[in-house]
């Protein structure tokens, strides 16, 4: 269909997803039974404070006006202020984005670096020791919640061997090694479940590619087995893996929130959970929307990678 049209379509789709997330958040908050302002501030809040919040949330205006302002504010990056400490929500969230992104990206890198080679080995050495080991790893990966992996890692590496720090986060500016030593365990906890799925996808996709006619053609041309595998097979095998890897960011995301709690890291996930406990609704709303935007943006990046490795989209044509 041509790369430009494809990308335009994906960008439109991403915008639509964000629009729907914002709408769902709006509807959810407005359907709180009773007075949202009273619920947010708690039963013993002074009436003036409640009234001020009602004003701020425009709760006295008709719903469609509220909706309009809601969308306008999001469009201009205004996510409101925290009820807990009156700081702008966007600043609060950006302030804690560093650790979340560090864990997520390092986790993803670990997942891809382990899972894709393991998936390839597993497929090429099907029904041999390597395959069984890799399959076992992937099955455990898809069966263990990230926070439990985190707890096990703390028990083994931090408590028993006192090898790596179990709590907190250090900015990369304060030393890359310290940063990495704080990030590696949570990143593993996040990356293993994600890697498990990626590995299974790589394996089954590679197995399919190995049976393709063009692989036999490549062999019939006298190419060496590893040239056949890596020059002719790899890119084809990765196309479906890339397709799902974006959608599976959701797995990564769920992992990040709970893993931040386990490792006591002040990231976006922990801020979100703390805000829920404080009933700090503007932060909850803003957090959900901002994280969704990051999530959708990452998916868009994956789409771009997809267009690059799939010539059918890059060059269009064909039937």
């Amino acid at each position: 269909m041509g790369m430009r049209r494809y990308i335009a379509k994906r960008v439109g789709h991403a915008a639509l997803v964000i629009y729907f997330v914002a709408t769902v958040v709006f509807i959810a908050v407005r359907s709180i039974p009773g007075d949202p302002a009273r619920l947010m501030l708690g039963g013993d809040a002074p009436p003036e404070a409640i009234e001020a919040l009602r004003q701020e949330l425009r709760l006295d205006e008709p719903v469609y006006i509220q909706y309009f302002y809601w969308m306008r504010d999001i469009l201009f990056g205004d996510l409101g202020e925290s009820i807990f400490n009156n700081q702008p929500v966007l600043d609060l969230l950006i302030g804690v984005a560093g650790p979340t992104l560090s864990i997520g990206l390092v986790g993803m890198a670990i997942a891809f670096l382990i899972a894709i080679p393991a998936g390839i080995v597993s497929a090429t050495r099907r029904y041999q020791v390597e395959d069984y080991l890799a399959t076992l790893f992937s099955f455990i990966g898809i069966s263990v919640p990230g926070f439990f992996i985190g707890i096990l890692l703390i028990l083994v590496f931090a408590n028993r061997f006192e090898f790596l720090p179990a709590f907190g986060y250090v900015k990369p500016q304060e030393g890359l090694v310290t940063w990495f030593s704080h990030v590696i365990l949570p990143a593993l906890a996040v990356g293993v479940p994600y890697g498990g799925i990626i590995m299974r996808m790589t394996r089954s996709s590679m197995l399919e590619v190995l049976n393709e006619d063009y692989m036999r053609t490549a062999r019939s041309k006298g190419l060496s087995p590893r040239l056949v595998l890596y020059k002719h097979g790899l890119q084809n095998a990765l196309i479906p893996v890339v397709t799902v890897s974006g959608i599976l960011f959701a797995v990564l995301l769920g992992g990040v929130v709970s893993v931040e709690i386990v490792f006591g890291i002040r990231g976006m996930g922990r801020l979100l959970i703390n805000s829920i406990n404080r009933r700090d609704f503007p932060v909850i709303q803003g957090g959900v929307i901002l994280i969704s935007i990051v999530f959708v943006f990452m998916n868009l990046l994956v789409d771009l990678v997809y267009t690059m490795i799939n010539p059918k989209i890059k060059y269009g044509g064909g039937e």
Partner: peptide, 20 residues
């Protein structure tokens, strides 16, 4: 369904449980 596919569901679930 396409839009639902790209939804960050766990976040939405967390929010729904937080609200309701």
């Amino acid at each position: 369904v396409d839009v639902m596919w790209a939804f960050p569901w766990l976040l939405i679930a967390i929010m729904l449980v937080a609200i309701f």
